[in-house]
C-alpha cells in the first residue's frame, strides 16, 4: 500500500500562540505555537505536549509524519514524534512513534498512561537533524519510520481508530526551543491488496 496524503501543514505563517483552528491541544498536555515558521511548545507545564489535526479524521489505516528540525540533547530529556488513532482531546488515548536521543520507539497512551511497545537504537543527529519521523498503523500493525526507512515495528490491538497529530516531551529543565517541528503530513493508504502488515514481536536489531 502507498501513502495517500490528505493534509499537510508546512507551518509557514505568522507567529501565533496557537497552531490554528485545525489543531487541537489535549487536556493535561502542553499545546504548540508557531514561531519563526516552526512548531514549538507554547509552554512547558505538563512536560508532555500533544496537538491533533481535526480537519480530517482518516480511515483506521492511517499515517502521520513530522519533520524534526531541532531536538536538543541538553540538560533535559526530550522526545518528539507523531501520533495516530488518537481520541478526541479530552481523552488522551492513541499510538505514538517518536525519537529520543538513542532510539526510536513506538508506544501507546491509554487514558494518559504511556506504555512503550518497541524500541530500536537510533542516534539523533546532534545538530539540525532535519529528519522525518512517521508512523503507519495498518490493522494491528504499527511501524515507525525515519525518512521513510522502516526502523521499528510491533503489534497492538487496543486502539482501532482516531486522529493524527504530533507529540513531544520536554522534561524539567528544558526550554521551549528544545524541539522545533515542521512539515506535518497525514493521510490514509491507497486502495489495493492489503498487505499482511508485519507484526507481532518483530525481531529487533537483526
Amino acid at each position: 500500500m502507498a501513502r495517500n496524503t490528505l493534509f499537510t501543514d508546512n507551518t509557514t505563517r505568522a507567529d501565533n500562540a496557537d497552531l490554528g483552528a485545525v489543531w487541537d491541544p489535549y487536556t493535561g498536555c502542553d499545546a504548540g505555537r508557531i514561531s519563526s515558521n516552526l512548531i514549538k511548545p507554547a509552554s512547558i507545564v505538563n512536560f508532555a505536549g500533544q496537538e491533533a489535526y481535526n480537519g480530517t479524521i482518516p480511515a483506521d489505516d492511517q499515517w502521520a509524519s513530522i519533520n524534526i528540525q531541532r531536538i536538543t540533547n541538553g540538560t533535559a530529556y526530550v522526545n518528539a514524534g507523531v501520533m495516530c488513532r488518537y481520541a478526541a482531546p479530552s481523552t488522551n488515548t492513541g499510538y505514538v512513534a517518536a525519537v529520543q536521543f538513542n532510539d526510536i520507539f513506538i508506544g501507546k497512551k491509554v487514558a494518559g498512561v504511556f506504555t512503550s511497545l518497541a524500541s530500536v537504537a537510533y542516534t539523533v543527529p546532534s545538530t539540525s537533524p532535519n529528519i522525518d519521523v512517521s508512523l503507519e498503523v495498518v490493522g494491528t500493525g504499527l511501524e515507525g519510520f525515519i525518512d521513510l526507512v522502516s526502523k521499528v515495528s510491533t503489534t497492538d490491538a487496543s486502539i482501532s481508530s482516531g486522529r493524527t497529530g504530533i507529540a513531544w516531551y520536554i522534561d524539567t529543565g528544558g526550554t521551549d526551543n528544545d524541539i522545533n517541528l515542521t512539515n506535518f503530513a497525514m493521510g490514509d493508504f491507497t486502495s489495493g491488496a492489503t498487505t499482511p502488515h508485519r507484526s507481532l514481536l518483530l525481531g529487533v536489531g537483526i
Binding site: 512536560f47 491509554v110 487514558a111 504511556f114 511497545l117 530500536v120 537504537a121 521499528v152 514481536l201 518483530l202
Partner: peptide
C-alpha cells in the same frame, strides 16, 4: 506510565525490543 518513564519490559539499558503489554481501560 509517563512519557519519561513508560511502562516497558525490564531489560538492560540499550536493549532493542518489541514487547506485548496488554493494558486495561485505565492504561
Amino acid at each position: 506510565g509517563t512519557m519519561r518513564d513508560p511502562f516497558r519490559p525490564k531489560l538492560p539499558a540499550g536493549t532493542e525490543y518489541s514487547a506485548y503489554i496488554p493494558t486495561g481501560k485505565d492504561g
